[in-house]
């Protein structure tokens, strides 16, 4: 009997699980995005353009961005610092590019030159969709504010209240919350509600991600 108990205790010690590794497929296409997007520059003014490079896991990296203006007579821009000067009434496209591994990624915006600088607060809308077998759906509007951004979720929003520890993030990787901003624990499961998110640039994040902390798994997402 002693031997049997000893063997069981030994067996128990041997099979007590060790922490292993799970892997999440978090590979994304690198992107370059111009994050300062005025609608109109005042004639004769200067403007500092900025761009954000997100690598293959959606993390921001500092890189040397090349800046070009399609019409140097309307807007001139120096590279790589991105300092632009509005020279003439009209329009020009501004191109930011970054070359790596023989690939070039770019972002292009159109900028006007007028009598005054016009920087319109922006907004965009989309739909939250489940990526799991938990109910999660609803429309939203993502609105730039003076303080940051406002995530305004519509009346048709619905989320499973059976799901524990649901959190909402802003992320640049749809499959990972690494480098993401945790917005809030979710405590509304039906109907309209909103999140004021200060100190966030309108173009800073690409995705809304709903993540279940207890299961450590993504539940839903929306493109921004």
């Amino acid at each position: 009997m002693k031997h049997i108990f000893s063997l069981l205790i030994l067996f128990s010690l041997l099979i007590q699980g060790c922490i292993g590794d799970d892997f999440v497929d978090d590979n994304v296409e690198p992107i370059l995005q111009i994050t300062t997007t005025p609608d109109t520059l005042a004639l004769g003014s200067t403007f500092q353009f900025e761009a954000m490079y997100l690598n293959n896991i959606g993390a921001q990296e500092s890189v040397d961005v090349q800046w070009e203006s399609a019409d140097q007579e309307v807007i001139s821009i120096s590279s790589p610092d991105g300092l632009a000067q509005a020279l003439q009434i009209g329009s020009s496209t501004i191109r930011a590019s970054y070359q790596f591994d023989e690939k070039v990624i770019e972002d292009i915006i159109e900028i006007h030159v007028g009598q005054n600088t016009v920087d319109v607060l922006q907004s965009k809308s989309g739909t939250i969709e489940t990526t799991s077998f938990y109910t999660l759906k609803g429309d939203f509007e993502f609105i730039e504010t003076e303080e940051g951004v406002l995530l305004d979720i519509a009346e048709n929003y619905e989320a499973s209240s059976g799901l524990p520890g649901l959190y909402i993030y802003l992320s640049n990787n749809p499959n990972s919350i690494a480098n993401a901003l945790e917005v809030s624990a979710v405590d509304v499961f039906n109907g309209a509600h909103r999140y004021d998110i200060p100190n966030v640039d309108f173009e800073e994040y690409q995705f809304i991600v709903y993540f279940c902390k207890p299961f450590n798994v993504k539940v839903g997402q929306a493109d921004l």
Binding site: Q16, D21, F23, V24, N56
Partner: peptide, 11 residues
């Protein structure tokens, strides 16, 4: 004993 694995980037 209750444990959870590491979550690692596949990239």
């Amino acid at each position: 004993r209750n444990y959870m694995n590491n979550l690692r980037s596949a990239t």
